[in-house]
Simulated scan of single mutants.
Amino acid sequence: MTTRIPGFTTRRLTAGGTDLHVAIGGAGPPLLLLHGFPQTHLTWRAVAPALAESYTVICPDLPGYGDSGPPGEGVEHYSKRAMTATFAELMTTLGHQRFAVAGHDRGGLVAFRMGLDHADRVTHTAVLDVLPAVDVFGALAGAGGVFAFHLSFLAHPEPLPERMIGADPAVFFGHFLDGWTKVTGALPAEVRSEYLRTLSEPSVIHAICQDYRAGVCFDLEHDKQDKALGRRLPMPVLALWQDPGEAPLPFDPAALWRSWAPSVTTKALACGHFLPEERPEEVIAALRELLG
């Protein structure tokens, strides 16, 4: 097992004033893959090599996550609109004016925002196991919020979350890495250790908290404004999520994504939250179908 994506090279590139750690491989039309919480670009390690047979695949660590530097100190730098601008600049730097984007979890929120704010550049959008901020905060009210406590906890003003997580990062982040995984063997020890390596850094803990604070302070308002204006994703969209099994979700992901995307394909996969790691072959097939 390697903690690098097989066949990919890593580079350090600056975009939007952020020092980004980026893995790149393959040749063909460009595809930007964005990871989620609490991971790094390695979440795509089983998906990216297969897609690199037909596409130029770009896998960065989100600003402040993994080995990417922070975008700035203020919470506003962690809004999905700001991250979207950073990744749009990254793709320009790499010579790609038009490209497809797929994101899981927090990366899915960036992909969603990119599809709205840079619709002239995005050819296809895929979102994995995530809902826009305006929808998720409404959907997880009441008892549902207990199971997504991190959304509010991480968004609390500093330094409370940072200090509490910093007391034992392995226990805090391990709770999600282990508890959100349903497929045995999907998260090998080497990869789990690599995630925890960066997650133990105070700067990364702070960046993750800033990301979630931005979700409440900025992303929620941006989504509300777009919803009120009737803005939609004009390109073909794929929305995948985990099949909840016998415990039904307190919302309808397909219906929510149809409200944002006139041309959307939706599907539930039998796994936990980490779709690219738990069901890579199905994710590969779905992305290939989307991209044509």
Rank of each mutant, 00 (worst) to 15 (best):
G74V: 01
E221R: 15
Q225N: 14
V130H: 00
H156Y: 12
I284C: 08
V204H: 09
F149T: 09
E73N: 10
C271D: 05
A27P: 15
A82V: 04
L128F: 10
L140V: 13
G145C: 12
W260Q: 01
G28D: 00
V204L: 07
T93S: 09
P71Q: 00
L116T: 02
L240E: 02
L140K: 08
V75F: 08
K224R: 15
F274L: 06
P236Y: 06
A139Q: 10
S259K: 08
L90R: 09
R279D: 04
R231E: 01
L269V: 11
L51R: 07
D135Y: 11
A167P: 10
T93N: 05
F8A: 03
H41T: 07
D168W: 04
L20C: 05
A148G: 10
F112L: 03
R279M: 06
K224L: 14
E53P: 11
I205G: 00
I208T: 11
T3H: 07
L51G: 10
A126M: 00
L13H: 13
L187D: 02
K224N: 14
F99D: 01
S200K: 12
A255R: 14
R81E: 08
T265S: 15
D211T: 09
T123I: 02
T86R: 07
T181Q: 00
P276T: 01
L62N: 05
P71E: 00
H206M: 05
V191Q: 04
A228L: 13
W241D: 02
G69L: 04
R11F: 12
P253R: 03
D129L: 06
A239F: 02
L32I: 06
E278Q: 11
Q39D: 07
P202K: 05
I58M: 10
P63I: 07
H104P: 02
V130M: 06
A247L: 13
E76F: 06
P262R: 00
P157L: 05
P202N: 05
P250L: 11
P6K: 08
G215I: 08
V204F: 09
L220P: 14
K267T: 13
H118A: 11
